[in-house]
Design a protein around this nucleic acid. Structure first.
Length: 582
DNA sequence: GCCGTTTTCGGCCCGACTGTTTTCAGTCG
């Protein structure tokens, strides 16, 4: 059973308790579901290894829910859930996805109209049966139909890398309104989560109504869900929802914090406020009616007795405690990278020449890149064999000579993205690998091996003395392909033993390693690198996403090898300098 | 049902907005 499947049942339980009017339980189940969903390790495995103790390690899961999960894993059944489902046999998870429908309304729709799923809901709404219900009306009915339509069209979250440019564009346009002093985007995009559900925007103005009017006039807006004097909620033509909130300058910090989230982080801040006899909301931190803080986030955190928490850390994952004790990490910065260690060119499946990639990387502010074209067993990309690699090395030597002559402070490293074969061996001869500056190894096939087989295969590759970096370790593709089944703790231990660097691949749909594994590497002292995996000159911009992910994993500059200047970087690789002789 | 630098019992964030209501429940973030 996957974590996702377990989490789904717990989410449904939360809704079911809500329908029954039970207090506090819903929130507990919800929190447990979130904990399970976000847990990197399979609970099935954790339970096999450590029994109920393994389950209790998940945040939000206590004795009660751990017992239910155990029952589910052991017997495939969960009695209480099945009984509640018998009482209210509806497709809760899908119905909850309709904007404006929550547990209470779903219960009413089931009791009065026997609506069980989205199809029933759509039929009833189209037949105008819903408007006749108490507490519903024509507008609710129309809203439900729009919600169903929206689900059919887009359905869910989009990749951060896809939305970020559009979010920044909106931010810029709002900033340019004459009544606006300043504007900022917040929400999960500011926390650099890998996917974004909707766009949260914040503006400072003393004329909020005028800002609302100007925002409404933007051509991007498709539909207005709701608007008030300081708040507006719309759907954009690109299919994404956006919220704009307008606050006075003295509330900007508090509003930015509130709007950035995460929700759990905010709740913890508010609890700290309560304990200090204060009240925290989006307008500021208050003692009675007196605002004591809130103009900037920095000030707000300090008043609460905390050091400033970077947005990427605000996931209620220990950052509050660390902020209280002054032991937050000094995160790797967005300007800290000096090199990029995974770059493809038109020698295989990249679009551009080595020279073009060099120019683009230099413009981006880098000092070195490794050219890492695919190798031969990845035939569809025109992967290089030994002879082609040797030829490319000669070409790179020539480019470096030219760069030196032009007095450019830039170096091209000879590398490859070497394919890991099914048995964990590499598809290029050791003798040639030994001539490269940087050897990356990667999984591009046999994604469906068992966890034991896959882990064994990957360990063999990591332990290969020629393998400097393990590229995109879990081979996931967000919203498209599941990660390969790996015992990540084993992988991290092996990387530590062998001195192999683990990569954070920055492509919008990879972001692999993901935040949770990055944090484990940081804790284990395993070094990582942040690469763009560029296949064209425009892809270096994605490095920002990888850096964001690294920050979400609490990584500092010293955890990331390509923050080093080129010579220091090269001599930090395993086996060097013996293996590499110029 | 969870959780703990005020607690192993007694709490559990806070406000905006909608739609249906004549004062508020439900949803959302």
């Amino acid at each position: 059973m996957t974590n996702h499947e377990i989490a789904k049942i717990l989410f449904e339980m939360a809704a079911l308790w809500d329908m029954l009017g039970v207090e506090f339980k819903p929130r507990s189940y919800e929190k447990a579901a979130e904990g399970v969903e976000g847990h990197g390790d399979s609970l099935t495995e954790a339970y096999k290894k450590n029994g109920i103790k393994g389950l209790l390690e998940v945040p939000g899961v206590g004795k009660g829910i751990a017992g239910h999960i155990e029952e589910l894993l052991k017997t495939g059944h969960y009695k209480e859930y099945e009984e509640l489902k018998k009482k209210i046999p509806v497709d809760i998870s899908n119905l909850m996805r309709v904007q404006g429908l929550g547990p209470k309304n779903i219960k009413t729709l089931w009791e009065k109209l026997e609506i069980r799923n989205l199809d029933d809901l759509e039929r009833a709404a189209k037949a105008q049966k819903i408007r006749a219900l108490r507490q519903f009306g024509q507008k609710s009915e129309e809203k439900i139909l729009r919600g169903i339509e929206f689900l059919k069209q887009s359905g869910g979250r989009q990749l951060l890398g896809v939305l970020l440019p559009e979010i920044r564009d909106l931010e810029k346009r709002i900033t340019s309104f004459p009544e606006v002093e300043r504007a900022a985007f917040a929400g999960s995009a500011r926390r650099r989560k890998e996917t974004v559900g909707d766009i949260d925007l914040l503006a400072v103005s003393s004329k909020p109504e005028a800002v609302v009017d100007r925002f409404l006039a933007l051509p991007e807006i498709d539909h207005v869900y709701g608007k008030g004097p300081t708040k507006i909620n719309v759907r954009l033509k690109n299919g994404v929802d956006a919220d704009l909130r307008i606050v006075p300058a003295e509330s900007f910090g508090a509003a930015l914090c509130y709007f950035t989230g995460s929700k759990d982080h905010n709740i913890k801040l508010r609890e700290i406020a309560i304990k200090k006899g204060l009240k925290l909301n989006e307008y500021g931190l208050f003692k009675g009616n007196k605002r004591v803080s809130g103009r900037t986030e920095d000030e707000l955190y300090r008043t609460l007795g905390l050091s400033y928490v970077e947005p990427e850390l605000r996931e209620s994952a220990g950052e509050i405690e660390a902020a209280r004790e002054g032991r937050l990490p000094d995160l790797v910065g967005y300007e800290d990278l000096k090199g990029d260690l995974q770059v493809q060119t038109n020698w295989t499946d990249g679009e551009d020449t080595i020279e073009a990639m060099v120019d683009a990387a230099e413009r981006y502010g880098l000092q070195y890149i490794a050219i890492t074209d695919h190798t031969k067993s990845l035939a569809m990309t025109g992967g290089a064999d030994e002879a082609k690699l040797l030829k490319q090395m000669a070409a790179i030597d020539q480019i470096n000579r030219k760069l030196r002559k032009q007095k450019r402070n830039f170096r091209v490293l000879k590398g490859a993205e070497v394919n890991i074969q099914k048995d964990g061996s590499l598809d290029i001869a050791d003798e040639v690998l030994g001539k490269l500056d940087v050897v990356g190894v990667a999984v591009h096939s046999h994604f469906n091996l068992t966890r034991e087989e896959q882990t064994r295969r990957v360990l063999r590759a990591i332990e290969n003395p020629n393998a400097d970096i393990f590229f995109h370790p879990t081979a996931r593709s967000i919203q498209r392909r599941e990660p390969i089944a790996l015992d990540m703790d084993e992988v991290i231990r092996a990387a530590k033993r062998a001195g192999t660097v683990l990569e954070i691949d920055s492509l919008p749909d990879r972001l692999d390693l993901k935040d949770e594994y990055i944090r484990r590497c940081v804790e284990s002292g395993v070094r990582m690198c942040i690469d763009s995996d560029s296949h064209s000159v425009s892809h270096f911009q994605y490095l920002e996403l990888g850096i964001g992910q690294a920050r979400r994993g609490w990584a500092t500059k010293k955890d990331i090898v390509n923050t080093l200047p080129v010579d220091e970087f090269l001599s930090s690789l395993k086996g060097s300098p013996q293996r590499r002789r110029e």
